[in-house]
Write a protein that binds this DNA or RNA. Structure first.
Length: 485
RNA sequence: GGCGGCAUAGCCAAGAGGUAAGGCAGCGGUCUGCAAAAUCGCGAUUCUCCGGUUCGAAUCCGGAUGCCGCCUCCA
């Protein structure tokens, strides 16, 4: 099987045939840098990170471009509220964005263009659109004439008349058609502005992506992605602008990720029901968020809940514990990798990923493998094939994980990170736990099991589980109150 | 009002014409002083409902119902 991608434009899965193989151009709409990122952003960039990694794994030479919108109404407004200039605000939020992306272990795109650094390019494209008869100037504003492009609304599958009838279109006397949108906005007093042939002003919202995507990827490129809420009007308008400027349908495959919901409602700034990436990764180990986001197909909605996060974190813990145990075993006993075992898992991964990047299926397979790994680990004695089986499954897990950007960290530091977050949430200190373990050890030595059990129960009530092993007593922290629902 | 998507066990979720992955929870066994962790075994004659196509449908077609989203800034 070969790679198929669901194309929003055709609403079908299509065979992936890049314009210039093995090169692939991929543009993903980036952030508007006026605030911290929420986990909806995390979903989008995690999904396209996995897509990027898989395309690279398949042997494509991917050029990945993701923009920063560092100039728009919201940035200007927020900067005014805070009494800083827009560059300061944008820089702060871009820095915070990088922290978030690094926390989640997402790769940096090859090019990350900013709007304010592409003014001349934007002006040039707006001029082309006017020259080609798709734009008009009114009082220093430049508008796109949607009636001039008969392909308008093809991406979102709507009709011009229905859109107008659907109301809620802003009234603007300057526009020839209510759906005409601004390519260039005349400067208002107190707003940052740039010189242009139409007077001082700044770009409209959609033009930046048209300009920066085509500048770095050519007038026609392979993949354009973003959240499903961008289909209309953002991507629809980009498409119209590109056609107007360059006479081509600029994107071959339109890809849109589904939303993150909270209590089944879309997470959005206007509903004030969003959590930032920083909120979530402070509470839960960051890779758990990544696991949760990849545990469903990228087009389906994901409902965020504490319970879902706790379960994802449990899975991360389980994987890393298993990986650590397997490595420890192999360090002691050796073990030869059977390429067939690894290949079988990788073939399964390819089958899933080729089917529109089914990361959920891959995770299912990974769970089967890690369970098999623990099964091998739990065999008593030294069955001859045991070490080889462990070595093979470990490699299968690590190689699959690498394709998704999962399970690539040092197990001990992950386990420590999970443990720290959990005891903080439980309000218990490590000293407290160590003291209890010592007290219980003494009781057990005296074979006072009643007292030993009482100590253990006391800690269990606080969410700390003690476990006796041949190497001594170890402990784990649980998340309380999330499995009761 | 227009357009799009989704509906699979108690819960989360793969599967896209050939007889239901995986995870959580639950029950029973191994292990253990007892536990925990880990592991083994057990769960849908059936995929919202009603028709149709087919030797065969969770998968295709038609219809119904319910939920979600877009049409305004939004990943």
């Amino acid at each position: 099987m070969s790679l198929k991608i669901y194309n929003t434009f055709s609403r079908k899965k299509e065979p992936f045939e890049p314009l210039n193989p093995p090169e692939v151009g991929m543009y993903v709409c980036g952030i508007t840098a006026y605030d911290l990122c929420h986990i909806g952003h995390a979903r989008c960039y995690t999904a396209f990170d996995a897509i990027y990694r898989y395309l690279v794994f398949k042997g494509f030479k991917v050029k990945y471009v993701r923009n920063f919108t560092d100039l728009d109404d919201k940035i200007i407004q927020r900067a005014n509220e805070k009494g800083v200039d827009i560059k300061t605000l944008a820089d702060q939020n871009i820095e915070a964005f990088y922290e978030d992306m690094d926390t989640l272990g997402l790769v940096r795109p090859d090019v990350e263009p900013r709007v304010t650094e592409h003014m001349q390019d934007i002006i040039d494209v707006v001029r082309r659109i006017i020259d080609n008869g798709y734009g008009y100037v009114k009082n220093g504003n430049v508008y796109f004439n949607v009636q001039a492009y008969d392909g308008y609304l093809q991406l979102s599958g709507r009709k011009l008349d229905d859109m107008v009838a659907g109301a809620r279109v802003e009234v603007n006397e300057e526009k020839e058609h209510p759906l005409d949108f601004a390519l260039w906005k005349a400067a208002k007093p107190g707003e940052p502005s740039w010189d242009s042939p139409w007077g001082k002003g700044r770009p409209g919202w959609h033009i930046e992506c048209t300009v920066m995507s085509t500048k770095y990827l050519g007038h026609r490129f392979d993949i354009h992605g973003g959240g499903a809420d961008l289909i209309f009007p953002h991507h629809e308008n980009e498409r119209a602008q590109s056609y107007a400027a360059f006479g081509t349908d600029f994107v071959k495959y339109w890809m849109h990720n589904g939303f993150v919901t909270v209590s089944e409602e879309k997470m959005s700034k206007s509903l004030h029901n969003f959590l930032t990436i920083k909120d979530v990764t402070a509470m839960y180990f960051p890779e758990a968020l990544k696991y949760l986001l990849l545990s469903m197909g990228y087009r389906k909605p994901i409902n965020y809940s504490e319970e879902a996060m706790a379960r994802a974190e449990d899975r991360i813990e389980y994987f890393y514990e298993s990986i650590a145990a397997a490595r420890e075993y192999i360090d002691r006993r050796g073990g030869t990798v059977d390429p067939k075992v690894v290949q079988q898992s990788m073939d399964r991964l390819v089958d899933y990923m080729d089917d529109d990047f089914n990361t959920a299926g891959v995770l299912g397979g990974l769970n089967t493998d890690v369970k098999a790994l623990n099964e091998a680990l739990s065999i008593k004695g030294k069955a001859p094939a045991k070490a080889d089986r462990i070595a093979s499954l470990l490699q299968a897990i690590e190689r699959q994980g690498a394709v998704l950007g999962l399970f690539t960290s040092d197990p001990q530091s992950v386990l420590d990170g999970i443990r720290k977050r959990r005891i903080a949430a439980l309000g218990v200190t490590e000293d407290e736990i160590e003291q209890a373990i010592e007290a219980r050890k003494a009781a057990r030595k005296d074979r006072d099991f009643e007292r030993a059990d009482a100590i253990r129960n006391e800690l269990a009530a606080k969410g700390i589980v003690m476990m006796d092993t041949p190497q001594g007593t170890i402990w784990k922290a649980r998340r309380l109150g999330v499995n009761d629902e």
